[in-house]
Amino acid sequence: MIVAEQKPLEEIKGVLGDAENVLVAGCGTCVTVCLAGGEKEAQLMASALRIASRVDGTPIEATDVTVQRQCEWEYLEMIEAEVEKADLIVSLACGIGVQTFARHFPDKWVVPGLNTTFLGQPEEQGIWTEQCQACGNCMLAMTGGICPVARCSKQVQNGPCGGSEHGLCEVKRIRRVDGVPVMVKGRGGRMMPATEDVECAWHLIHDRLKEHNRLDLITGVQEPKDWTTSRDGGPRRIVREDLILMDEE
């Protein structure tokens, strides 16, 4: 699923401008499942914006509405009336939903309430990890279902590199809680972000292929990746001619 997390309220408040009627729009799909922008979160965000504006002395109207999927305009059409009343929309969808909103309601101003973080899976309750970068050219068949593009710090294609030790990558991840780096006192007393261990994807790949007796898959030199299917080919598009509706004759 698409995993996202809420922006700090302060940041959202900062982009509201002089809007008096704010519509907080939740999305019922990915961001509901990752508890960042579903119906509950939209209600809570609306409440938080109302309270904060009252405390600040410039009360605004903040209401909420949630659609099944903000990334499809058919669903947005269903909330036209609510959108009409608002002078600004805080979209709690992923970046796709925000853009669909902006495109479908061109005369409305829409701002994101979330940071879209990655394509991932729930590791356990409350923890999500990145699994896929949508490079457009899946190599999981070679790597035993473990993605080096998304999960190796250097996207090495012929790993593991020399920075692998005890199954861990030498590169550490900045530890974030609720999106904010956790700061700790570093050497010399300077505050710096705390880090946490990351598994070496190639160590995992090696062990899994060995387990399945398929190490032969990675003994050859993997050719340089064709990134044209990835973002490097520009914004991507899929055309399925079997699905396109022809113009009526």
């Binding site: 809570l44 938080a48 309270i51 405390v55 600040d56």
Partner: peptide, 9 residues
């Protein structure tokens, strides 16, 4: 509690 801090209550 954190949210209440953020909204100013």
């Amino acid at each position: 509690k954190k949210l209440l801090d953020q909204v100013g209550l």
